[in-house]
């Protein structure tokens, strides 16, 4: 494992055709989920904030696919819809949460940034940049004590490296040999502030290297890369019981929230190279090259996924709002 800032481009993993089709479908589901979610946000059905995962699918799907969710746990931050789908939560319940309905993942009381599910080992969802990093470190420490070989995966963005708690947490994780994988989804923006305008070092692995843990920068656009890296890194963490810091290079297609206007702070020209390396496109091309699917079959799959999600949106709309009495439930008064 690299401890330098040199990008490590792992070989694509040799997965079965069936697995590759499944991964494509999962990434498509996230992409289409966010499209429909954005539509419902603009329709006024979703209130507050909406942080779209579009563009970053290969990171979450690759890493979560490699997890053993019978013993591993996830602590996430606010761009969490895609990760909720990747752990296997039903889109109906995720949409219902976004609509503020009783069938929501958090019974309609959390909203977009606050999805939790004990059964799927998904411990949030966190609205505070960097707010979950220390919580994840505690989860990792608990897993170490439990001795079943479980590890914690914590997802956050590049902006979180600017918080004090990131540094405090990595220090403790290294000091205490916590089995945790910190995954910085470097989507190039801390809200509207580009990496070179918010970070003293733009190779983010260098900012984590001071804590004596292995660090690795990977291509976050190619799921073959993220999945292979995840499998190798998780095996190492389980064996060595040491934390690892990953910087996955990717790009956020939308603004920080879908209500903001990214062209205030970035140009279409700088978006272009990323859009040409779209994670769905990369895997789709591979499937075509390896003659696993045709372009037409991929498009048919996309339409099928979109139609399924439309039905999920409709099902979520059928869920009633929480009852008034639920305002005062689940809280000490």
């Amino acid at each position: 494992m690299s401890t330098s800032s040199e990008p490590v481009i792992s070989d694509r993993v040799a997965e079965s055709p069936e697995k590759l089709r499944t991964l494509l479908r999962r990434m498509m589901t996230i992409r289409e989920f966010e499209h429909l979610g954005e539509r419902e946000f603009r329709n006024g059905l979703i209130r507050g904030y909406y942080h779209s995962y579009a563009g970053q699918e290969a990171v979450g799907v690759g890493f979560i696919e490699a997890m053993d969710l019978t013993r591993d746990y996830i602590v996430d931050h606010y761009r969490d819809h895609g990760h909720c789908l990747a752990v296997g939560l039903d889109a109906v319940n995720i949409y219902a949460e976004l609509f503020g309905r009783r069938a929501g993942v958090s019974k309609g009381k959390g909203g977009s940034m606050h999805m939790y599910n004990q059964e799927k080992h998904f411990l949030g969802g966190d609205g505070i940049v960097g707010g979950g990093i220390s919580v994840a470190t505690g989860v990792g420490l608990a897993l170490k004590r439990m001795g079943k070989g479980g590890l914690c995966v914590c997802f956050f963005g590049d902006g979180a490296l600017d918080t004090g708690t990131f540094h405090e947490s990595l220090n403790m994780a290294s000091l205490w040999d916590v089995p945790i994988v910190y995954i910085c989804i470097n989507n190039q923006f801390s809200m509207g502030t580009r990496l070179d305008r918010h970070s003293s070092l733009t190779q983010l692995v260098d900012r984590a290297a001071g804590y004596g843990m292995a660090t690795e920068q990977i291509d976050g656009q190619d799921i073959g890369v993220t999945l292979a890296a995840a499998e190798r890194i998780f095996a190492g963490v389980r064996e060595r019981q040491r934390p690892v810091f990953i910087e996955a290079l990717t790009y956020r297609y939308q603004g920080h929230g879908i209500h903001d206007k990214p062209h205030n702070y970035r140009t279409p020209e700088e978006e272009d190279p990323w859009i040409h390396r779209d994670p769905l496109l990369i895997l789709g091309q591979r499937l075509i090259e390896e003659k696993i699917m045709t372009g037409e079959q991929i498009e048919a799959m996309r339409q099928e996924v979109a139609a399924e999600l439309e039905a999920k949106v409709e099902a979520a709309k059928q869920s009633p709002a929480p009852e008034d009495r639920e305002l005062y439930e689940d809280v000490t008064l």
């Binding site: 220390s134 470190t137 505690g138 608990a142 947490s169 220090n171 403790m172």
Partner: peptide, 26 residues
């Protein structure tokens, strides 16, 4: 030391560690 843990002077994050361990049943 496993049950009586000395922490660095990192109040925000060791409270967070407590939250994380509590979520796991400690």
């Amino acid at each position: 030391p496993e049950r009586v843990m000395d922490t660095p002077i990192s109040e925000e994050s060791f409270v967070g560690v407590g939250v994380g361990m509590a979520l796991m049943g400690y």
